[in-house]
C-alpha cells in the first residue's frame, strides 16, 4: 500500500505583495516510484521545503502538476494516508508526547493501539517522556516525537523535512538506522529533505540535487548500495567517492546562492 509521487514541471512563485514576487521553484519534475526512498539535497532556500509542501497539499503549484497515484495530494491527506514531519516540529504545546503522537489517529477517528504507540515512542527513544509536554523536551526530542507522529498512521507517503537537524551525531546515526529499518519493513514511499549528504547516501535509493534559487534539479543519482546498509558502509571508498561528487555539486550552487540571497526578488 504505497503510492507514486509525480511532480510534473512544477513552478512556484510566491507573491510578496507590492508587485514583488520570488520564484522558489523553476520547473521541477520528479517521479518517485511506489516504495522508493528519495532524498533531496540542495542549498538553503532552494525550494526543498516548497516541494514537500506541494506534495503535502499545503501549497498549489503556480504552474505544472503534482499528483500522488494520479490524484491531487489533497485526497491522500483527506484519507489520512500522509505522514509528515516538518522542519519545525509543530507539536501541540498543550498535549503530552503521548497525546501528540496519537493526534493523527484522533483526527482520523481510529482507536489508538496502546501497545503500538508505546513501541513507537520507544523506537524514537522517548520512553519515560510519554507524559511530558513539548516545552519540557529538548529540540532533538521534539523532532523525534514529531517523527513518531508522522509514522503513527502507517502512511502511504512519508514526507520528512530535515527531521534530524537538531540531533547530535550519535542520535542522528541511531535514528538513521532505525528509519532504514522501519522503511525496509513498510516500504513507504519516502521523500527526505536533508542537509546531510552522508545521511542521504546512507538512506536513499536515489538522491536529487537542487540548484540555488530558483530551485531546479541538477542531478538525479541512483544509489544502489545493497540493503540493509550498515554504518560500516560510510567508511567504504565507494561511499566516499559519491560523497565527494555530491559535495562538489553542492558547493558552486551554495556559492552562487549567497550573493542573490538578499536581492533575489524580481
Amino acid at each position: 500500500m504505497t503510492a507514486a509521487i509525480h511532480v510534473d514541471r512544477a513552478r512556484k512563485t510566491f507573491d510578496l505583495g507590492k508587485g514583488k514576487s520570488v520564484e522558489a521553484l523553476a520547473g521541477v519534475s520528479l517521479e518517485v516510484r511506489p516504495g522508493e526512498f528519495v532524498a533531496i539535497i540542495g542549498p538553503s532556500g532552494c525550494g526543498k521545503s516548497t516541494i514537500l509542501r506541494l506534495i503535502g497539499s499545503l501549497e498549489e503549484p503556480t504552474a505544472g502538476t503534482v499528483t500522488i497515484d494520479g490524484r491531487p495530494p489533497r485526497e491522500l491527506a483527506g484519507a489520512h494516508r500522509l505522514g509528515v514531519a516538518f522542519q519545525d516540529h509543530a507539536l501541540l504545546p498543550w498535549l503530552s508526547v503521548w497525546q501528540n503522537v496519537t493526534l493523527p489517529l484522533q483526527v482520523a477517528g481510529v482507536k489508538p493501539d496502546d501497545a503500538k504507540i508505546a513501541a513507537l515512542i520507544r523506537l524514537v527513544g522517548l520512553e519515560g517522556f510519554e507524559k511530558a509536554r513539548p516545552r519540557q523536551l529538548s529540540g532533538g526530542m521534539r523532532q523525534r516525537a514529531a517523527i513518531a507522529r508522522a509514522l503513527v498512521l502507517g502512511p502511504e507517503v512519508l514526507l520528512l523535512d530535515e527531521p534530524f537537524a537538531a540531533l547530535d551525531a550519535v542520535t542522528r546515526r541511531y535514528m538513521n538506522i532505525e528509519l532504514q529499518r522501519i522503511w525496509t519493513e513498510s516500504r513507504i514511499t519516502t521523500l527526505l529533505v536533508t542537509h546531510g549528504v552522508d545521511e542521504a547516501l546512507f538512506l536513499a535509493d536515489r538522491i536529487v540535487v537542487m540548484s540555488g534559487r530558483p530551485g531546479r534539479i541538477i542531478e538525479n543519482l541512483d544509489i544502489d548500495f545493497p540493503r540493509p546498509r550498515m554504518p560500516a558502509l560510510m567508511r567504504t571508498p565507494a561511499f566516499h567517492a559519491l560523497y565527494d561528487h555530491l559535495a562538489d555539486l553542492l558547493e558552486p550552487a551554495a556559492a552562487e546562492n549567497e550573493p542573490v540571497a538578499g536581492g533575489g526578488e524580481s
Binding site: S57, A77, R81, L82, V84, F86, D88, A90, L92, V107
Partner: peptide, 10 residues
C-alpha cells in the same frame, strides 16, 4: 505550522 499539520492530517 499547527494549521498546516491539521491539513496534512486530513
Amino acid at each position: 505550522g499547527h494549521r498546516d499539520l491539521l491539513v496534512v492530517l486530513g
